[in-house]
C-alpha cells in the first residue's frame, strides 16, 4: 500500500489522534478521564442521529429534517409522559410510542422518496419545515416541560460511572455496524445506493430497502430525542435540534460516507462524530470565541471530503 492509500484509508483515525495529541499538549486537562467521558456524552446525541443518517446516505438519500424531527419527537415524549403520569410504566410506554411514531414518520419520508419519486432533498426539506412548525405551534413558541421526575432522571442517569447517553450511543454503534455490514439488509443498502438499476435487476426490492433506511433514521432521531429531552427535562420549540442536520451529515461525511451513496461505514461515522466532539471541546478549552467554532468545523468538513476525492481520482 502506498502512503497515500494508508492516509486515505485510516485518515480519519490519524486526524483524530493528531487532534487528541494537539489538544493534550495545549491543555493537559483535556486528557483527563472525566473530560473524555464528557466528550462522548456530548457527541452521543448527534452521533445516534448520524448513524441513522449513515444508513440513509449509503442508500443514496439524505435527511435534512432530523433537527426539527428531533424537537418534535422530544416534545411528543414529554407530552405523553405528562399525560400518562409519573410512573415507570408510563415512561416506558411513552418511549415506545415515541420510537414508533419516529419510525412511522421516517417511513413517510422514505415512501415519498421511493414511491413518489421526489428527490430526498426536497422531501426532507419540506418535512423539516413541517415538523418545526408543528413543534412551535403546540407550544406556542415556548417550551415543553417534563412534569415527570422519573422521565427526567433517565438522561442524567449513570451506569458504572458512565452516562446513559454514552452507553446507548456505544451500543447503538455496535448494533448498527452489525446490521449494515453483516446482514443481507445491509448489503442491499449498499447495493441500492451504489447502483439502483443494477440492484433492481438483481431482484432487490429497492423501494422497500430505501424506505427501511428512513425508518432507521426516524428511530435514531427518536432515541436521540428521548435522551436529550429527558436530560434537559424540557424541549424548546424554537431551539432544540437546530443545526443538528448539518452536524449529523458532517459526522457521516467526515467518516467517509459518500454523499452520492453506496459508500460508508458506521465506524467511520462514529469517528467522525468524535472528531467533531474533540474539536468542540478543544475550542472551548482554548477559549476560542464561540462564533469562530463554526469556521473550524467548516474547514474540517471541506478538507475531509477533499481528501476522499484525492483518493477517488487516482
Amino acid at each position: 500500500m502506498h502512503l497515500r492509500d494508508v492516509i486515505s484509508k485510516y485518515g480519519i483515525l490519524f486526524a483524530l489522534i493528531v487532534l487528541i495529541l494537539v489538544a493534550g499538549i495545549l491543555s493537559p486537562a483535556f486528557l483527563k478521564i472525566q473530560n473524555i467521558i464528557n466528550i462522548f456524552w456530548q457527541i452521543s446525541y448527534i452521533g445516534i442521529i448520524a448513524i441513522g443518517m449513515t444508513f440513509i446516505m449509503i442508500g443514496g438519500g439524505i435527511d435534512l429534517s432530523v433537527g426539527s424531527f428531533m424537537a418534535l419527537m422530544g416534545a411528543l415524549a414529554i407530552q405523553t409522559v405528562n399525560a400518562l403520569g409519573d410512573t415507570v410504566g408510563s415512561v416506558i410506554l411513552s418511549i415506545l410510542i415515541t420510537i414508533a411514531v419516529g419510525a412511522l414518520l421516517g417511513a413517510g419520508s422514505g415512501f415519498l422518496v421511493a414511491k413518489g419519486r421526489i428527490p430526498p432533498f426536497v422531501v426532507t426539506l419540506g418535512a423539516m419545515a413541517i415538523y418545526r412548525s408543528l413543534v412551535l405551534n403546540f407550544a406556542n413558541g415556548g417550551v415543553y416541560m417534563s412534569r415527570s421526575t422519573k422521565y427526567s432522571s433517565i438522561g442524567m442517569m449513570r451506569i458504572l460511572e458512565l452516562p446513559v447517553p454514552m452507553i446507548v450511543f456505544l451500543i447503538y454503534v455496535i448494533i448498527a455496524s452489525i446490521i449494515l455490514e453483516r446482514t443481507k439488509f445491509g448489503r442491499y443498502v449498499y447495493a441500492i445506493g451504489a447502483n439502483e438499476t443494477a440492484a433492481l435487476y438483481s431482484a432487490i426490492n429497492v423501494d422497500k430497502i430505501r424506505i427501511a433506511t428512513y425508518v432507521i433514521g426516524g428511530i435514531s432521531v427518536s432515541i436521540s430525542a428521548i435522551l436529550i429531552s429527558s436530560m434537559m427535562g424540557s424541549v424548546s420549540s424554537s431551539s432544540t435540534g437546530n443545526g443538528f442536520e448539518l452536524d449529523a451529515i458532517a459526522a457521516a461525511v467526515i467518516g467517509g460516507t459518500s454523499l452520492s451513496g453506496g459508500k460508508g461505514k458506521i465506524v467511520g461515522t462514529f469517528l467522525g462524530a468524535l472528531v467533531l466532539g474533540v474539536i468542540n471541546n478543544m475550542l472551548v478549552m482554548l477559549n476560542v470565541a464561540v462564533y469562530l467554532q463554526g469556521l473550524v468545523k467548516g474547514l474540517i468538513i471541506i478538507s475531509a471530503v477533499f481528501l476522499q476525492n484525492v483518493r477517488r481520482s487516482e
Binding site: 449498499y190 451504489a194 447502483n195 438499476t197 443494477a198 453506496g262
Partner: peptide, 8 residues
C-alpha cells in the same frame, strides 16, 4: 449500468 454493483 444495470448488471453489476461496480464498487462491490
Amino acid at each position: 449500468l444495470a448488471g453489476l454493483i461496480l464498487n462491490f
